[in-house]
Amino acid sequence: MCWHIVLAVEEMMNDSYVYFIVALLPLAAFMLTIQINPYNALVIRGILGAIAALVYAVLGAADVALTEALVGTMLAITLYAVAVRSSLVMRLGVLEDGLLKAETQAESGDPSAQLIADLRTIANKYHLRLELIPYADPKSLDQALLEKEIHVTCIARSHHDTHDRSLHKSEGRPYSITTRIRRLYDILQTDLSSPTTSLTYVTAPDSGEKH
C-alpha cells in the first residue's frame, strides 16, 4: 500500500503542468484581496473556487474538490450575495405625495428628481443601494427614523410644517435631509454639495432589546 502511494506521488511530481496549475491559486487569491466592490469580490471568489477545485482534483483529492465546488463556490457565494445585498443598503424615507411621485415621473428638470439622482450617485459611490420607502405623513416619517426602520429621511419644506427642527438655520432651503447615522452624515456633508438641501444629524434613542 505504501509503495503504491509513493509511486503515485512520484508520477504526479513528474508532471510539470501541476506546478503551473498550482501557481494559478495564489494568483487568484491575490486578485481577490485587491477587490474593492463587494460584488466583484464575490465573482472573483467564484473564480478562486473553480481554480481551487482544479488544483485539488489534479493533486488527487477528488472529494475535497467536489466539496470546494459545491459548498465553497455555489452555496457560500449565493449566501454572501444575499447577505451583502440586504446589508449594504441606505433606506431613505420619503413622503408618499412628495419625492416619490417626482421619482416615478423622473423628469430631469425637476429638483426633487435631481436630488434623488444625486443621492443615488453618492450611494453607488460607496457601493450602497438606495431604497425609497414611502410614508404617509411627516410624523410617521420621524417616528420611523427614531425607531431605526430607516436611515435617512428626506422631505420638502412645505410638507414639514408640523415639526420644524432646523428651520432657523436653513431659510430658503426647500429640502431637508435628516440622518441618524454619523457616517452617513459625514458622507452626505462631504459629497452632497446641493444648495437646496439642509442636512441634520439626530441621535436615535437606543431601544436595546429590539432587532
Binding site: 460584488y39 464575490l42 465573482v43 467564484g46 473553480a50 477545485a53 482534483a57 488527487g60 477528488a62 472529494d63 474538490a65 467536489l66 465546488a69 459545491l70 463556490t73 455555489m74 457565494i77 449565493t78 450575495a81 444575499v82 445585498r85 443601494r129 431604497e131
Partner: peptide
C-alpha cells in the same frame, strides 16, 4: 476524478445562474 469533473461542470453552471439572478435583481431595484 472524471466523475468529479462532470459534477463540477454541471453544478458550476447552476451556481453561476443563481449568482447572475441575484446580481440582476440588485441592478433592477
Amino acid at each position: 476524478i472524471g466523475v468529479v469533473g462532470v459534477i463540477i461542470l454541471s453544478v458550476g453552471n447552476a451556481g453561476l445562474m443563481l449568482l447572475a439572478q441575484l446580481i440582476k435583481r440588485m441592478n433592477d431595484s
